[in-house]
Every structure is written in structure tokens, then in C-alpha cells.
Computed example of a mutant assay.
Amino acid sequence: MTGDAEDFFANTSVTSGRAPGVILRSRDVTVTHPAGVGAARQIVYTTTAGSGFPVAASGIVLEPGVNSANGSSQRRVVIFCPTFHGLGGACAPSQLVVEGTEPDAPSMAAALAMGWTVAIPDGIGLGLTGAGPHHFLAAASGAHAVLDLARAICAPTRAGELPKPVAVWGYGDGGRVAAAAAEQHPGYAPELDLRAVAAGAVITDPGALIPSIDGGPFAGMAFAAMIGLGRAYAHLPIDHILSDDGVRAVTTASTLDAGTLLAEYGYPLGRWCERPDPWRDPIWRHVLASEVLPQKTPIVPVHLYQGLLDALVPVASTRALFADYSARQVEVTWSQFDATHLGAADLGTADVFAVLREGFTRPPHSGTLPAT
């Protein structure tokens, strides 16, 4: 990064009592990819880690160009939750978008073409220097980063002005974050005019996912999950399971992007731990049990989707979330495709946009809880 970028992305301490969703600093940037960006700005804002501590987080806001579908002054906002990018280093979406190397750029471009403002959170622990590692798979941390980004850019700027309507969309780890944002919204940010949420290939139970990928081609993600959740639950004594090699590996891996993690840490977790099945440790059982979705009940429409040939996220887990939401009387819809994990991400876009468009036609959300 240049000197100016280093200053902008320097970690910022947030004092206790500081309201979440407040922009600490902002700067205009030039973005040429994805296509359709009219203006862009990177922001650093206040949020709250899942453990309750106030922290700073970064993100980027993309405004659609003049040729977009919607020229309304009451701009509709989509918070796009990116797929897993890594635990640290130069892989934050807010920086990759500016560099023109963001892997989720096609999804962002499609939303911009609809005339929607697209805002992308980096997530807690990613983007700001020294704040990591990223709280990978920590549902509350991810949800708060999403909802507080929406607060930061959707709040009224003048007396009598309504908050901007907002929707949330994500896939894979981003789908988990999107679903968690829907669940956290009523209690954490009820003033937001949240209209709809779309979540694909939702990781509902990290405790089931981690052992299923441990030792396989996605083993690096299992190790990343241990590191990310370890950071989110740092107030607990969770590093006792690590061997000396594991302690050193965590330090190095905490600065790496997703591709490098998969390439260099494709070993069973027992390689880094004092026991071959660290997820069975009592403290880790508590952590993983605390991360099972659903945790709370959404009060806005939720669309879930996935590929039947998904080899990474079990389709049964997202189906179970659909059934659970249905039992809770959530307005939830489901789409499935004869496709792989990546294939369904593309095939599901048309249904996602139909749900978000319909959500944006609804009356402003009141922020009230459903009857019990």
C-alpha cells in the first residue's frame, strides 16, 4: 500500500460507548472493475465484535453509473457479503475492488446494473492493518459489520428524510453472514429499513462443516475457521489445544489470503494441535455450538438457495435452515439447482434479484418484532 493507504487503513481504537455505524473516515477512490461504477469511496466505520467490544471496520461503497436501471434519488442499497477472501494481508474486498482484482466483481456489477448502490464490508479483522485475523465464520461479528455498514451509509442526512431502503445478499461464507444479519437485525439494528435478505449455500453449523472438510482438499479452510473463531472468542482459553508448531502456524496463516491458505495448510487439524480431533475439546464444543444458525428469528423476507452438487457446503444444512425459518413463520423462499457450489452462485442470481426487487417495493420497514 502507498503511504496514504497505509494511514487510511491503519487500525483505529474505538472507545467504549461510541455508537456503532458511525463513519470515522472516508475517501473517494477510482474503480474501473467491476463495470458500471459511477463513484466509489472507501470508508472506515464503527461496529461491534460478536463478543460485545467496539471495533473499527472497513468497507467500500459503489454508486451505479448514469446508465444504470434506476435513477431515483432515493437510492436503494444492497450490502453484498463477499465469499471468504482470507484471514489477513492484501485480500480485503475494499482494496481488491480498487485494484481491479476482486473475485466477486461480476455479482457486484450485476447489482450495480440494477441501479442499486452496492456496499461491501471487509468484515471484522480484515482490511485494517493490525486488526486481524479476520473473524471467519463468527456469525455475530459478520452480521454486525454488515448492519453497521448499512447504518453508516443509509441513515438520514437531513431532517424529515427517510433512511435508505436496504437489502443484504451473500453466498457461501457471505451467505452465512447475510443470514446472520437477518437474524441479528431486529435486536441489533431495528431502525434500519431492511427489506429483504438473500443467502446462498449457508454454512449453518461450523461444528459439522469443520470435521467434514478436515484433511480433504478444503482442509486449509478448516484451519482458517479455527483461527477466525479463535480470534472472535479470544476472551476464552481456546489456544490450549495448539502444539508449538500450531502456534507458529497460526501466526503465519493469520496474514494469508484464501488461496494461499488452501495451498499451504492442507493438513488435518491434528497436524497443528495436541489432539487429532480438536473440535471435540470441551471449550471448542462450546464455541462451535454457539455458532449454529438459526440463533434468532428474521422479520424480513429471506431467500435461500444452493446447488444440489455442492461438495463444500452440505445442501441439507441450508434446507434445514429453510425448514426452521418456515416453522418460525419467517417469509422464506427456496431455490435449488443441479449445479456445483460455484455453479449455483451464478444460477441463483436471477432469483435473488427477483426477491430483492420485490423487497424494495414493500413499504418501509417499521422495525417492530413479530408477535410471539
Rank of each mutant, 00 (worst) to 15 (best):
Thr30Ile: 09
Thr30Asn: 12
Val31Asp: 06
Val31Thr: 13
Val31Ser: 08
Val31Arg: 11
Thr32Phe: 06
His33Leu: 03
His33Glu: 12
His33Gly: 01
His33Trp: 07
Pro34Tyr: 10
Pro34Ile: 08
Ala35Cys: 03
Ala35Gly: 15
Ala35Asn: 15
Gly36Val: 06
Gly36Thr: 11
Val37Gln: 13
Val37Met: 10
Gly38Pro: 10
Gly38Met: 08
Gly38Gln: 13
Ala39His: 13
Ala40Glu: 12
Arg41Trp: 01
Gln42Cys: 05
Ile43Trp: 05
Ile43Met: 02
Ile43Val: 15
Val44Gly: 13
Val44Tyr: 12
Val44Pro: 06
Tyr45Val: 07
Tyr45Glu: 04
Tyr45Gln: 07
Tyr45Ala: 06
Thr46Trp: 05
Thr46Glu: 04
Thr47Gly: 11
Thr47Asn: 12
Thr47Leu: 06
Thr48Gln: 13
Thr48Leu: 06
Ala49Ser: 15
Gly50Met: 01
Gly50Ile: 01
Ser51Pro: 00
Ser51Cys: 11
Ser51Tyr: 06
Ser51His: 13
Gly52Val: 12
Pro54Gln: 13
Pro54Trp: 08
Val55Asp: 06
Val55Pro: 05
Val55Glu: 07
Val55Leu: 10
Val55Cys: 06
Val55Ile: 14
Val55Thr: 15
Ala56Pro: 03
Ala56Phe: 02
Ala56Val: 02
Ala57Ile: 04
Ala57Lys: 10
Ala57Asn: 14
Ala57Trp: 07
Ser58Cys: 01
Gly59Thr: 11
Gly59Val: 10
Gly59Cys: 05
Gly59Ile: 08
Ile60Glu: 05
Ile60Thr: 10
Ile60Leu: 06
Val61Leu: 02
Val61Phe: 03
Val61Arg: 09
Leu62Gln: 11
Leu62Cys: 04
Leu62Met: 09
Leu62Ser: 10
Glu63Met: 06
Glu63Thr: 14
Pro64His: 04
Pro64Tyr: 02
Pro64Gln: 03
Gly65Pro: 05
Gly65Tyr: 03
Val66Gly: 07
Val66Trp: 00
Asn67Ser: 14
Asn67Leu: 12
Asn67Val: 03
Asn67Gly: 08
Ser68Gly: 12
Ser68Thr: 12
Ser68Glu: 02
Ala69Met: 04
Ala69Gly: 12
Asn70Val: 03
Gly71Glu: 02
Gly71Ser: 10
Gly71Pro: 07
Ser72Phe: 00
Ser72Cys: 03
Ser72Lys: 05
Ser73Val: 13
Ser73Met: 05
Ser73Pro: 03
Ser73Arg: 14
Gln74Trp: 00
Gln74Asn: 12
Arg75Ile: 00
Arg75Leu: 04
Arg75Thr: 05
Arg75Gln: 13
Arg75Asp: 00
Arg75His: 09
Arg76Met: 02
Arg76Ser: 04
Val77Trp: 01
Val77Met: 02
Val78Phe: 02
Val78Trp: 01
Val78Cys: 11
Val78Lys: 08
Ile79Gln: 08
Ile79Thr: 12
Ile79Ala: 11
Phe80His: 15
Cys81His: 07
Cys81Lys: 07
Pro82Phe: 00
Pro82Gly: 10
Thr83His: 14
Thr83Lys: 02
Thr83Pro: 00
Phe84Asp: 02
Phe84Trp: 14
Phe84Val: 09
His85Leu: 14
His85Phe: 01
His85Lys: 13
Gly86Arg: 07
Leu87Glu: 13
Leu87Trp: 11
Leu87Gly: 11
Gly88Arg: 11
Gly88Met: 12
Gly89His: 08
